[in-house]
Simulated scan of single mutants.
Amino acid sequence: MADQSKTLGEQVLLAFFIVVPLLALLAAVPLAWGWGLGWHDLVIGAVMYLITGFGVTVGYHRLFTHGSFRTGRPLRIILAVAGSLAIEMGVTDWVAAHRRHHKYSDQAADPHSPWRFGHHGRGLAKGFLHAHVGWLFHPERTAPETFCPDLLADRDIAAISARFPWLVAASVLLPPLVGGLWSMSWAGAATALFWGALVRIALLHHVTFSINSICHTIGTRPFAARDRSSNVWWLAIPSLGESWHNLHHADPTSARHGVLPGQIDPSAALIRLFEKLGWAHDVRWPTAKRIAARRVDAGAGR
């Protein structure tokens, strides 16, 4: 059955939920400058965003979920801790949910498909909100025992997962500690808590959630995948390369998601750096043959 086009009303509704909250967050920065936002807060927030963001994209996702590369024990521990500081679930719970997502992508058992309530009107709006944040409040928990027994058998990763509450506390308290010591003031600690912890956590959360919601509803699909995964170019930088989502679902173990000209993939660049330093090996880089084989038009002449 051919895909049906969204109505103008559905497109407007999607645009509202995607654009308006982002504009509100961006507007808060210039409005707050000089009134509780300074350079210390920007530096602390940016550094924490990159540490925790790469912890999710390079660690949780490409290493632990898909095995896109291999590395030694120290870097595995560092990436697991960095991902935990993002406060997006402990490592084993996150990996279990994501492996389940790939197994049942955009089907009934997918934990966060935006299409589960239908393809039109209220069903699509409800599905979008479910994929973005609603699924997190569902009482059902994806069992790590079923989807990632390999990580449960890893003593380091299991220990880090068990200490997730302590890492949540560290993620919240580290920015105000640094901000207070840097400025030698309680005010510096307070603003760093707001911008370097709370706003940073919220921003990274919604960027990550957008891969589930936006990148499964709109965007381009140059590669053949069995679901509605799409590429959304304007999310590439904040998502550190994760929004090249269509290739990822077409070739999940690939260490690089942005494979076409002009597709910036910071997470792949970091993995490349690890490889050059000798910290990563057996990296599953995409080849021209594999990319060509997954293009939508690859089978046109068969």
Rank of each mutant, 00 (worst) to 15 (best):
R73F: 09
G180K: 12
L273A: 15
H101K: 08
W33F: 10
A158I: 00
H40V: 10
L85S: 05
R272D: 13
L173G: 05
W279P: 06
K289D: 09
R122H: 08
H98W: 11
H120D: 09
Q11M: 14
Y49R: 01
F17R: 03
V133A: 11
L260E: 12
D282C: 07
A28D: 04
P165L: 13
V20L: 12
H249E: 07
S213F: 00
G219R: 01
A46I: 08
P149H: 15
H132A: 02
A28I: 09
W195D: 02
F117M: 02
G55P: 08
L173I: 07
V178Y: 02
L22E: 06
R284I: 02
I77A: 14
F164L: 10
R226I: 12
T71M: 04
L50I: 01
Q263E: 14
I271T: 02
R272H: 13
T287H: 08
I218G: 01
P30G: 07
R226G: 15
A190F: 06
Q107I: 10
R70M: 06
S230W: 01
A97N: 05
G219Y: 02
G55C: 07
A96P: 00
G180A: 03
H112Y: 15
A269T: 09
H216C: 11
H138M: 10
R228V: 10
L42N: 13
V207W: 07
I237Q: 06
I44Y: 00
G118N: 11
F17I: 12
G262Q: 12
S105K: 01
N246T: 15
H102E: 02
T92D: 05
E10W: 05
L235Y: 11
S230L: 03
D297W: 10
E242C: 07
E88R: 00
A269E: 12
H205C: 13
A170M: 12
H61A: 10
L270R: 01
N231H: 13
S113G: 06
F274P: 03
A86S: 01
M184I: 08
